[in-house]
């Protein structure tokens, strides 16, 4: 199954890191990515720019409404994602727990919908 691992973290906290700490975190992310790729489990993923770069788009009654900022103001912000291939939820959870930001942020694990499964049970 395919799972999207959404990485939420505090942008403010990220900004306060020393360059040394930041480099160590990036290194750790790189290792995880390489390890998953080697096992054919990494399907994609990236860090995102901060929410100050975000633009929100809605179309209502055929009219386009464009606003600045993210969809929702939250304590932790979406800062990146991994798209992974895992046998089951337990494996996806195990991968999520290895994401460095899991230690001070939150990882949301969402299975990708397969034909028609997205409707609420």
């Amino acid at each position: 199954m395919e799972y999207l691992l959404l990485i939420y973290h505090s942008e403010a906290g990220w900004g306060k890191m020393t360059p040394g700490d930041e480099a160590a975190i990036y290194r750790e992310y790189g290792q995880l990515r390489d390890d998953l790729s080697g096992k054919g489990k990494f399907l994609g993923g990236s860090q995102l720019t901060p929410t100050t770069m975000a633009t929100t788009v809605r179309v209502r009654d055929g009219k386009r409404v464009v606003t600045d900022g993210p969809f929702a103001e939250t304590k932790e912000q979406l800062g990146g994602y991994f798209l992974v291939n895992a046998n089951d939820l337990d494996e996806a959870i195990a991968i999520a727990a290895r994401i460095p930001s899991a230690r001070n942020g939150t990882i949301e694990v969402r299975p990708l919908a397969v034909r028609g499964q997205a409707k609420q049970a």
């Binding site: 799972y3 046998n87 089951d88 939820l89 337990d90 299975p111 919908a113 499964q117 049970a121």
Partner: peptide
């Protein structure tokens, strides 16, 4: 439904 669609395994951890 969640067991099926989120892929909760049927397995001893």
């Amino acid at each position: 439904g969640k067991i099926r669609e989120a892929g909760i395994p049927y397995r001893v951890p």
